[in-house]
Design a protein around this nucleic acid. Structure first.
Lengths: 363, 363
DNA sequence: ACGGTCTAGGCGAACGTTCGTTCATCAGGA
DNA sequence: TCCTGATGAACGAACGTTCGCCTAGACCGT
């Protein structure tokens, strides 16, 4: 247990120079020091295991090289992909990431942001739809620290990064329409969420473009969990027996939707076609394999951090939302690949798994 | 854009006292200052929006009230549950959490830990099985900073927190045996992982206790992804047509296993019973609903942080691993609830979904 | 009138850096 | 010989705190 940090003064003393000189050699840039002296200092530093104290450095430089990340539910695969990518890019740029996970409802949003500000993070990334309506948090992000947000911030003033959910939803719905469906339901996230409304708009756009008038009864709200999604599905089935397709707002919910359909004796895609959003890694392996909109969470995380770092560096933020493209991945659950009218497990749907498998951390 | 922090000196000046006195009032404990003076200082501080600079505080106190978390794949639901709980507990104790997400293979382990140490975190939590064999990281955790680990650390010296995977696997396997299965396969994580070996031992314990000699051919390795798990399942099916049950090492992999079984025309649980590990939120909603060992990831995160904080405070660490209990949740996939010989979606398996649904952050 | 004891608050130092300025030495040119 | 300019390195100040010791004055008892 060494557990004591060696300071630059000790290095300097052992090298026979002033600590400031050592500082210049070790951490500063190009300074006028003789080659031998520099070499000596470096040698001593190495032998002593010197590591600059970033805390002290932060104090004088008035910058911590740290960004704060206030996160909603990381447990959600989508957000976690975002977070991982964000942290890695930040680290790639020499920045560390301080995270705060909100309580379930996000009621501690202001406290979390305050804690990040108190720790003098150089900027904050907000990735928590729960905070969409939080005026206090919005004000903090606007005034006290450079910020980038993944979700809508009331009052604006904070650059946004995200995907074009409206376009994505439209694409998904159009695909179902092309397959001949005319009674298309949707299982959504909470209506009050921006993403959800965008997707509903995209869904309606597609329907109207095809001359189908959207029916309120065909939209059922859930809360992103499989359980509520299953309940929403049952509701849809009760309301309209003729419904032959469902557009689901997340893969996790799609699991619940598939479950409810199975329990109701509806075959997928023969009786009901399903398209979802997120394209989580498990999507190809559900039964039937799940068609889904691929949302570039990793890309988004990277983009958010890069935007934030530029903003910290003083570059003006873009006035409009940075939008990343989504892409529809067609698999069996929508029947768009010409598979199955028979139950999926009797189909030798060769193409479904195995492709695009991410070689995972082999933990 | 205010974006300039007010220091205690400004507060003190406006209140007409020395900054040290202001410090005592605002941040120190019980000091001898008259009530009026104190009130005045506090009033000024509030009106100016003073917030103590934690960076400066850290410098003098030689403690950052921050813990580092080196994480393997957060994208994995299990780990993310752990991380969220850990961060929340840490925050509850006034500590912030700095995260570092390893690269896929964990090859940047030392770099990540070094980065945390450079930032002078008070302690480190290692939650990355990829690092199990990393001697360099092990040495760092042992010498430079108080640490707690979720995974085995070569050479020891770092307190461990985790679940009793061997006992859990034994329980799961015993359950399958009780249901009458005698040819029980297993789809595992990478063999070189400690957890995996523990679970294999538990699995073999149960078999031997029932007088069944474990068969190497019945253990197929995967890498925690549904894709490799599906492949492993196909392998098992080829090797032994009589196999009637599979013990899977994670719910994510179970998705792949179910997929492969469906494609092979085997019904679950009628032809093959499946029990898995993790009990992720989606487990009740797979078709059929998945029996799984509930592993207390949240509890583990909390325990890890509490142990670490005690260790930081100077308490001696426990010499043995802190072990949290796992619990078998029986659902339809193992047939242990007396459900279905018919395909699951024809069964009105009423009990499966809806119970124990965590009301999720309604993001 | 004098010493002692509180009380309220001041003050210096330290934490480990960075940054800009100053200083000493030396060589070369006039 | 003296001045000039490099060159190499030292030095002081500052960043915003905490911590412990010091002190001015008030009050008290004798």
């Amino acid at each position: 247990m060494a557990r004591r940090y060696v300071s630059i003064k000790e290095v300097a003393a052992r090298a026979g120079v002033s600590f400031q000189t050592a500082s210049k050699v070790l951490n500063g840039g190009n300074v006028r020091v003789s080659a031998e002296t520099a070499a000596r200092i470096i040698a001593v530093a190495e032998s002593l295991g010197y590591r600059p104290n970033t805390v002290a450095r932060s104090l004088v430089q008035q910058s911590t090289a740290t960004i704060g990340l206030v996160a909603g539910d990381i447990t959600d695969g989508a957000l976690s992909q975002f977070v991982v990518a964000a942290e890695r890019t930040a680290r790639g740029h020499g920045h560390a990431v301080l995270v705060g996970n909100l309580a379930e409802g996000g009621e501690d949003g202001a406290a979390v942001v305050q804690m990040l500000i108190d720790r003098r993070v150089d900027g904050v990334i907000a990735a928590a739809p729960q905070l969409e309506g939080d005026l206090q948090v919005a004000e903090m992000l606007r005034r006290y620290v450079p910020a980038v947000s993944l979700h809508h911030v009331p009052g604006g003033g904070v650059p946004l990064v995200g995907s074009n959910h409206r376009a994505g939803a439209r694409t998904a719905t159009e695909h179902l329409i092309q397959l001949g469906h005319t009674s298309i339901g949707t299982v959504t996230g909470p209506f009050r969420r921006h993403v959800v409304r965008s997707r509903l708009h995209g869904y309606e756009d597609a329907l109207r473009a095809a001359g189908i008038e959207p029916d309120e009864d065909l939209a059922a709200e859930a809360d992103w969990t499989p359980g509520t999604a299953a309940a929403a599905t049952r509701l849809l089935l009760e309301r309209d027996r003729r419904m032959t397709a469902i557009f689901v707002h997340s893969d996790a919910m799609a699991i619940g939707v598939l479950s409810a359909l199975a329990l109701a004796g509806r075959r997928v895609p023969a009786d009901v076609a399903v398209v979802s959003c997120d394209d989580m890694p498990f999507a190809p392996y559900l039964t039937p394999s799940l068609s889904s909109l691929r949302v570039p969470f990793g890309e988004t995380g990277r983009a958010a951090v890069e935007l934030l770092l530029r903003s910290i560096a003083g570059e003006p933020a873009p006035e409009s939302t940075v939008r990343l493209p989504v892409e529809l991945i067609v698999r069996d659950s929508c029947g768009g690949r010409g598979a199955s009218t028979s139950p999926p497990y009797l189909t030798s749907s060769s193409a479904s798994p195995a492709h695009r498998e991410k070689q995972k951390e082999d933990s």
